[in-house]
Amino acid sequence: MRIAFIAHDQKKTDMVNFVTAYEQIFKKHKLYSTGTTGKRIMEATSLTINRFLSGPYGGDQQIGALIAEDKMDLIIFFRDPLTAQPHEPDVSALLRLCDVHSIPLATNMATAEVLVKGIERGELEWRKENLSPKA
């Protein structure tokens, strides 16, 4: 699976803790992230992350391009709904793309945990069938 991580500033520590907790699952997959989030994850784990630009510089849009090309299987975007700053990535564009292409997107730790446990049990294998619409 191809998994992308994005986190607003106030949620980066939560993302690092989450990925660290599930490192053994994530190490079996191809991982992507916005710049700063990916850097912090790699500093805390032994995972290799394909990093894009930081969110304020368009990293979330680079991930969005891969979603549009059906080259992502899961997005974990820990957003801060209460104190997000204007420079931080907006989840709405990614959410729309994920809905168009039937790609799961978790915006909080509880949903992310359910999806990761599904990956562990092989319950997201339907993505391999490439069910998303084509232009």
Rank of each mutant, 00 (worst) to 15 (best):
H29R: 12
K30L: 12
S54Y: 07
P86E: 01
S102W: 11
L53H: 09
K30M: 10
Y32E: 04
A110M: 09
P56Y: 06
V91R: 04
S132M: 08
Q61V: 12
K71T: 09
F77C: 05
A68I: 08
H87R: 12
T83A: 13
S132T: 02
L97F: 07
H87Q: 12
E125Y: 09
E123H: 13
E113F: 09
V100M: 10
V114W: 10
G55V: 01
L115Q: 03
I63D: 03
D90A: 15
E129S: 10
M72H: 12
L31Y: 07
T45Q: 01
C98Y: 03
R96D: 09
T34R: 06
V91K: 08
L115A: 15
Q62C: 08
T34Q: 01
V114S: 10
R79A: 11
L131P: 04
F77Y: 10
P86D: 05
I49E: 10
E125L: 11
I67Y: 09
L97Y: 01
E69N: 08
N130I: 14
R127E: 12
L95C: 05
T48A: 15
Y57Q: 08
H29N: 13
E113I: 14
G118F: 13
I119R: 03
L131V: 01
I41S: 00
P86T: 08
Q85F: 14
A106V: 08
K39G: 14
R96N: 06
S46C: 15
R40P: 02
D60G: 13
K30E: 15
K128W: 02
P86N: 14
D60W: 00
K71H: 15
A44L: 03
P89G: 03
L105W: 05
K128T: 09
T34D: 00
T107H: 11
A84P: 00
M72P: 02
K30R: 15
G59V: 02
N130L: 15
E88W: 11
G64Y: 03
E129V: 06
I41T: 05
A68L: 15
L53S: 12
S54F: 01
N108Y: 10
A44N: 04
L31V: 06
N108R: 01
L94S: 03
C98I: 00
Q85N: 07
F77G: 01
P56D: 03
A68N: 14
P133K: 09
Y57A: 11
R51N: 08
K117F: 01
A93H: 15
I67E: 06
L95T: 12
S132E: 12
T48K: 10
L82I: 13
L95D: 15
V114T: 11
W126C: 08
H101A: 01
G122W: 06
E69R: 08
A84L: 07
P56T: 03
I119D: 09
D60I: 00
D90H: 15
A106S: 04
S54Q: 03
C98P: 02
